[in-house]
Amino acid sequence: MEWQTIPITIMFLLFISCKNETKSLDIDLHKDNKWTMGVKEQTGVQTFVDNYLNTINDTLLNGKITKNYTRNMNGIPVATNKIELNAKMNLYAIGFPNYTIDKTYTEICGNRAFIQWEFSGTNTGLFAEVTATGKKVHITGFSQLYFNKEGELYQEDIFFNELDFLQQLGYSLSPPNLK
């Protein structure tokens, strides 16, 4: 249960730092029309998660991310532009056709958004060239999104327990061969 204290600690630190932080950029992610896309009472972050991550609709990203956008997963760069981002998200859409990403907590501080989320789905399709396992997965994670002065997303850092994800799919670790 030690791994559960990490998200709580991160959220506590964010709460403290956000209370004392002044906005470094002149943008309001809660009201930025570039992100609301005509949907009243939804923040840009909500629109990004609800409409893009749950539908893989790349047209929603037109004018919403920078050309030098970067997505890092657990510290590893996995996408450096919109095309690579769509390819990465399509891996999950194909492997987990019924997947959903739900936000459990969102905090916006200046030009950054912090999101705690839950991913759920059943692996019924090919996932990164691996045959479907038919197993259900439910993982929690944390994302930090960075926006420029125009309100465009330029970096996304995602953290989750990849071992837990793979174990839920039925994979296991074997001890190293020490011979």
Rank of each mutant, 00 (worst) to 15 (best):
residue 8 I to V: 14
residue 104 T to E: 14
residue 85 L to P: 01
residue 29 L to R: 03
residue 137 V to W: 06
residue 141 G to L: 03
residue 125 G to M: 08
residue 56 I to G: 00
residue 59 T to D: 10
residue 3 W to C: 07
residue 115 I to L: 09
residue 53 L to R: 05
residue 26 D to L: 09
residue 52 Y to L: 00
residue 1 M to A: 12
residue 138 H to K: 15
residue 129 E to R: 13
residue 141 G to V: 05
residue 6 I to E: 06
residue 49 V to M: 09
residue 85 L to D: 07
residue 28 D to Q: 07
residue 112 R to W: 05
residue 137 V to E: 09
residue 43 T to E: 00
residue 119 F to P: 03
residue 88 K to C: 01
residue 129 E to I: 07
residue 113 A to I: 05
residue 156 E to W: 10
residue 102 D to L: 13
residue 99 Y to R: 15
residue 44 G to S: 04
residue 118 E to T: 15
residue 135 K to Y: 06
residue 82 K to N: 09
residue 59 T to Q: 08
residue 84 E to H: 01
residue 92 Y to I: 09
residue 135 K to F: 04
residue 82 K to H: 05
residue 114 F to E: 03
residue 95 G to S: 10
residue 65 I to D: 03
residue 65 I to K: 05
residue 5 T to D: 11
residue 117 W to D: 03
residue 176 P to R: 09
residue 110 G to L: 04
residue 112 R to C: 11
residue 61 L to C: 06
residue 59 T to V: 05
residue 4 Q to C: 01
residue 109 C to D: 02
residue 111 N to A: 09
residue 74 N to K: 00
residue 123 N to K: 12
residue 153 L to D: 04
residue 150 E to S: 14
residue 40 K to T: 03
residue 45 V to I: 15
residue 156 E to R: 13
residue 58 D to L: 02
residue 46 Q to S: 07
residue 37 M to A: 13
residue 58 D to C: 00
residue 18 C to W: 04
residue 35 W to E: 01
